[in-house]
Design a protein around this nucleic acid. Sequence first.
DNA 1: AAACGAAAAGTTGTCAACAATTTTGATCTA
DNA 2: TAGATCAAAATTGTTGACAACTTTTCGTTT
Lengths: 250, 250
Amino acid sequence: MVERKRGFRKSVPTDPTSIETANKDLPDRVDEAYIVERIYSAVMEHRLPPAQKLNELKLCEAFGVGRMRIRRALLLLSDQGIVELEANRGAFVASPSPKEANEVFDARMVLEPAIARRVAVETPPEYLAMLKQHISLEGEARENSRGADLIRLSGEFHVKVALASGNLILRRVIRELVTRSSLIVGLFGASNHMDCPDGEHSDLLCAIERGDADTTASLMFEHLRKIKDGLDLAPPKPKEGDLKDILGLR
Amino acid sequence: MVERKRGFRKSVPTDPTSIETANKDLPDRVDEAYIVERIYSAVMEHRLPPAQKLNELKLCEAFGVGRMRIRRALLLLSDQGIVELEANRGAFVASPSPKEANEVFDARMVLEPAIARRVAVETPPEYLAMLKQHISLEGEARENSRGADLIRLSGEFHVKVALASGNLILRRVIRELVTRSSLIVGLFGASNHMDCPDGEHSDLLCAIERGDADTTASLMFEHLRKIKDGLDLAPPKPKEGDLKDILGLR
DNA sequence: AAACGAAAAGTTGTCAACAATTTTGATCTA
DNA sequence: TAGATCAAAATTGTTGACAACTTTTCGTTT
């Protein structure tokens, strides 16, 4: 049995611009899933902006693993639409087009009301407690103006609702879509950042607690519609004559 | 510019037991997505049984690519639950446990009715034509007793319904679940293979054409429930005294 | 000074070799 | 014959080197 060398874990002086500072202690075993998870989180918290270059060597240093692990993780992320792989150019955090953004929210508006309805019909009590606690966390974050936390929590709520179905497949699907939504909000979010309007998550939880399936579903639908409407998804339409107008040559 | 060598494509004498016989002409560019697609298809058509070993070298020969490509494709497949990677032992077609099987059908029963409802509300006409054509294909296959085709078509119908939403994300999600369902049916399918009962797909299409959203959703739900009920998902319960009974030592 | 172009540096894609582990198969023993 | 034991073969996991491509740098020309 040979002890695997993985020497330079905490000693590497990573520059502050690197994606992952290696000072946060890494787990004993860094596998693809862990790397994916960390990048997921960074995207959800708007720490990784769309189109950000993900350099393989820098990631290797940050995670203290070989290039193979990083490449495999990037492949998984690209398969989920979080990262875009360009041949010979590398990996970039995805920057969804307005069309893709529409597709993501379209999908969410189909799936999430159905999942929420199911949760309203039958929720294991431990999950209900989890949701309650989450609402109070959101409240705290809002009062203390912890904007970064609020962004993260807003997304996490939807993931937790899916988790409350007790079905990990559903959680996974929603997690993927919520993460992509984070990128979309970062790109097309209007100035008045009403990412997840104030009381809506709370209202949703109330409907769930009452077991009111129909209300739950429609609340979720309207909630998502509101978020989507808050985006500036102007389709890039290069009409005839546009150039003249833009350049003020009329 | 150097022409990439990829010499031995059609000349490799693959043994007939290999998963992919290389005689079917491969596309010019074999990338991970293509390999994943082919294995997806093989699983859907019950040509790859659960727990089948997927040898890397054999796959390399079959697809005419290097080992890296194969390993990346297998990683993607494992991420989607189609393949299981066991450390140092290799890749195997997944053989879902009864619990996982439950989870898959549970997820489908939440998601697919919602998607079908959406399709009923608004269907681009070209997709409606596609569904109609599919129904007639199923009819042909059933009359001519082409069992293999029928199995494939039964699964594909659900994927096409999702596609009819016009949303590729939804299609992708359902495709993944349908493929896993193929494995499940192969494992737990009852002897009387009522995979997708006779007229149900046709009934569903009628409801969609009428634009009857509620009926569409509930038909889809009942359809899936029926398939699930047709499975033998007996949880493996090793009760006390079972062994004696099994061995006839009473 | 801006534009162009070539060399240099940096990054990604691919492959082959090696190490670690598992599987196979042969031999021996009871 | 069934089972145990151990070496050989096969398979997977990992690393390092190299080729192909891209980006940057820097000198030259207009």
